[in-house]
Design a binder for these strands. Structure first.
Lengths: 108, 108
DNA sequence: CGAACATTTCACCAGATGGTGAAGTGTTTG
DNA sequence: CAAACACTTCACCATCTGGTGAAATGTTCG
């Protein structure tokens, strides 16, 4: 039921991958460029980007002998919708509570 | 640097915990009430809620012989800010691209 | 073609995570 | 006080995860 959502959250639950997404939001980058700011070996970077690709957050394409990564922020829409639903419910509850307090408050 | 963010994402990267948060957004609940819809033992539920508490998403308090959990959606604000920043950058990039295409397109 | 380069695949390891049953803690209640 | 209840803590296990070095793959270039 929450499958796609947990995959997205899982993909973002790592500082290296969060940094990758941040970097890609400023423009495409090759594996090498993505790895450069992190003390990490090529295989580790391949794995991290693989997780992001599996989550639908990033796409990869070969360009010459490099591999260029692109952000696909559409994959975040499910997450945004979930957040909106959650906070919507929350806000309506807060409103209801305030109403209640106006009508019947007995200090703290 | 992304410490709080990765903790939040990590806490939400599990279907059981996502369901707990969903349930709590509709109102407080005891451990037993939270466990009821999931085929899960009490110790497992204690662990899951512990993860959410550590991430600041939930607070726990003893009430009689039960433990009542409350959602603390303020803990999601960092995440919302990150999402907004990301999509803001993305949207501005899309705008710039569209401008570029208007001025200098050479088909595909 | 062969060397250099960019990345991936493979085999492996240490530690985190999600789960369990059994025993312990704190709280009503007969 | 003892039994029942609602959880938590503990010890443990299987699996997942992030990391590595070594070897393989695909691509450009002399």
């Amino acid at each position: 039921m929450f499958d796609v959502l947990t995959t997205t959250f899982g993909a973002l639950a790592d500082p290296t991958r969060l940094a990758i997404v941040g970097r890609l939001s400023r423009g495409d980058a090759t594996m090498g460029e993505l790895a450069e700011p992190h003390r990490i070996t090529p295989p580790a970077m391949t794995k991290h980007v693989g997780v992001l690709v599996d989550a639908g957050l990033v796409s990869r394409r070969r360009v010459g002998r490099t591999v260029v990564c692109t952000l696909r922020p559409e994959a975040l829409s499910e997450m945004e919708r979930w957040l909106d639903d959650l906070t919507a419910y929350w806000n309506s509850t807060v409103d209801r509570l305030e109403e209640l307090l106006r009508g019947d408050h007995d200090g703290d």
